[in-house]
Each structure stands twice: as C-alpha cells, then as structure tokens.
Design a protein around this nucleic acid. Sequence first.
DNA 1: TAGATTGTTAATCGATTAACAATC
DNA 2: TAGATTGTTAATCGATTAACAATC
Lengths: 225, 225
Amino acid sequence: MTADCRPNEARVPDATVARLATYLRVLGVLGDGAVTTVSSEELAVAAGVNSAKLRKDLSYLGSYGIRGVGYHVDTLTEEIARTLGITVHRSVALVGVGNLGQALAGYAGFATRGFRIAALVDADPARIGTTLQGQPVRDIAELEAIVAEHGITIAVLATPAAVSQEVCDRLVAAGVTSILNFAPVVLTVPGHVDLRKVDLAAELQILSFHETRKAAAQLAEVVTR
Amino acid sequence: MTADCRPNEARVPDATVARLATYLRVLGVLGDGAVTTVSSEELAVAAGVNSAKLRKDLSYLGSYGIRGVGYHVDTLTEEIARTLGITVHRSVALVGVGNLGQALAGYAGFATRGFRIAALVDADPARIGTTLQGQPVRDIAELEAIVAEHGITIAVLATPAAVSQEVCDRLVAAGVTSILNFAPVVLTVPGHVDLRKVDLAAELQILSFHETRKAAAQLAEVVTR
DNA sequence: TAGATTGTTAATCGATTAACAATC
DNA sequence: TAGATTGTTAATCGATTAACAATC
C-alpha cells in the first residue's frame, strides 16, 4: 500500500468544498427522517443550488450515486464527511473570549458538526481562570503549551484587532496550520497555513451596496414612467 | 437631470464589491496617520491582494487615481463608501438575541463601519423587555411595526434554525430587502431580496478539508522519501 | 424493457493577472 | 524631460450550467 492508493482524490475546487458543508447539513436533516435515498434534484433544491452543479460537485468525491435512483443518504453523508476530514472529530483552540469569543464558545453548532473546542484562551487577567461552558479560560502566556498539549492545528481567532497579527504569529509558530479570523484586520501567514476570515461588517456593507442599486433602479423606473 | 446622470456606475462585479469593504477598512487605518496618498501597490499589500486586481477593482468606480502619484486616501475612502452606500448610515434590525445575537448586538464594528442597530427583536418572553447595549429587546409580535417605524430594509437573522424561514418570510413581507443569515439553514427568498449567510461551522469544515489534504501530502512525502 | 437519474462533456460566463500604453 | 504609477487590454484560469449518453 502506497500513498497513491487513492489516486482520484485529486483536486476538489474551492467553490465545491464550500458547498460540501451545506450539502452535509441538508443531508443531516434528511437522515433524521425516513428518507434513505435522495436525487440530485431534491438535494439541490434543499441546498439552494443548481442540480447540475450539485452533481458535478459530488463527482469530485467519486461515483457514489446510482443512476435511475439517486444517492443513498447515509453513504453520501459519510463520503462528504470523510472528504471534509471530520470523521475524526477535530480539536480547535478559541483565542479571545470577549464579546464575540464568548458567543463562539457557546455556539452548539461547532460540536454538532465535528469540532470540539479544546481550549479557551485570553490575555485579560479578569477573564483568565474563569469558566465558560464548563471550560477554564487559560492564560495566553501558555498558548504554545496549550497547542502542543491538545495537538491543535485549527484555531479560531476572536482577539482585538490590534493584537491579532501577533497572536496569529504565535499560533503559527506553535504549529497551528489553519486559522479562522474574526478580527477585522488583514492577517499575513506563511504559505503552508490556511487562513479564512469572517468580516461581519463587510457582510452588511455588501448588502448595503445592493440596497443602493435597488433604490437607484426604483428611482429610474419612476423617472422613465 | 435624468436618472442617467451617472451613466458609468454600471456593473461592479460581486467579487469586487466584497473586496471594496476590505479596501475601505485598510484606508481607514491609513487615514488615521499622516498619509494622504497611497499607491495601488501599497494598498494592495495592506489588503492582501494583487495590485493589478486592486486597480481593476477601483476602475469600476471611476478614475480616481493620479498616474505617477497614486490615490488620494480621502477621495478614495469617500468614493468607496459612496459605492457601498454607507455615506448614509443604515439602520438594521437584529432578530434573535440568544447566544450569538447578543454578541452581534454588542459588536462595535457595525457602528464604526456604517450601521446602526435600530432594533433588537426576540420571541422569548424572558428576553423581551430586557435591555441590551442600552436598547430594549422588543417582542417579535411587533416585527412588522418595528420595520415600518425605522424604515428598515436590512435585517440580521440570528434566530434558532427551526423558526428562521418563518421569521425571514415575515421580514420580507414587512418590506426588508436584504438579510444576513446566521442560522444554519438554507433560506428561500423572492428574487428582489438579497440574502447572505454566515455559516460558522462550515468555515471550520472548509479548513478541516485543507488540514486533511496537508496531512496526506506530508504522509506522501514521508513515504516517497 | 421503459423510465429515471447519474456522471460527463462542452459551451459559456465571470474573475484573475501580467504586461504595457497612457499620462501625471 | 525622466520616473512613477495608473487604467486597460488580452490572455488565462476557474466556475457554472445545459444537454445528453451511460446505465441503473
């Protein structure tokens, strides 16, 4: 057995990976019911995408559908979970338990979808030692030890903007290779580290842009009428 | 003066709009200092993008750069803010003030980046009437009145998954045309409504996918070595 | 077999980027 | 004028989607 034993696990496009998470969530709802099989059309409607796109997405994982029938819910669920790497539950560190961090610590969706928050970390002496969701808030001074202790490779960053790059650097130096950043700053990481960001205000600004466009369209309609 | 007085405000690509928010944030940091002018290269590095992409993005707004010099920070800030429609401060409603909703209510970044949370809404009698960030939590029974009262067109949805579609329908019926959804469900809205979603667990699953790939690559390296 | 649905092809569309003419 | 930097072109890349042959 060589490393090539799964030769066709080749490349899954980024856009596809992002959607796999949605398919998995929708399949979870279906799996609760009596449904054992689902067609690409049904699943696509439930996931809010085009069915051709869904079939193409799933084709990157292999051939798990049955022509004339559809996809077996359990099989597909398992294959997507395996592709996303969440058949092993993953331990993440949550750094920064202020306003947003506390909410993330209490977010039940992480646990139900494959992640365990193995450590809460903060720099504020008033928070260190307190308990959140049954977990102690640990001193950021121990960051490197905490990462090593739990073998953590994924971290969620909810620190103040001003210190985020510094904390990020320490996480990377400690061996973290994936970071989800909630701080409204552009972080720089080495090439081997994956970085994703959630920018809450930016999301609203994007909606605001479209509001403006809609308002302008309405105005134009009135004028030309 | 007709509706055509700004003929070249044509189409700004979706990918560009999403990045404009980042440019605006970076410009805000520059504007605080003594910098009055910035080149596309400098701004691109600060925003973490390719400078050709940045120039192309900005070219959709018009010609606000000066060849041989760069962009005037103040002018560019103003033009991006205008394009995003946040020169008028926008009022948003936050529906659902549970775990995540409370954090969003306290998130300072909304206010500093153009948005005012004009109303907090919940269905839980234990929460209704309480105060968060100096604002009363109002009964979702009054949702339609609240939207009308503040002329709200943008809503943030942080309700439990099970009721999100129903709340979404009511928001749309009340006149809301943009929704930012934090509930882990696929929502359906009419064509004239813009919908964006933030799926926290999905973000981690995407990182998990890449972790798996990196681990496999390392394994392959060891095997072939 | 007949009906249904997958997996794939190929056309199309949108986004990225290097290169450079235009011009400050 | 010389140096610098924009705005745009055109090539490339990646994602989407309709259509349909393969096949259960």
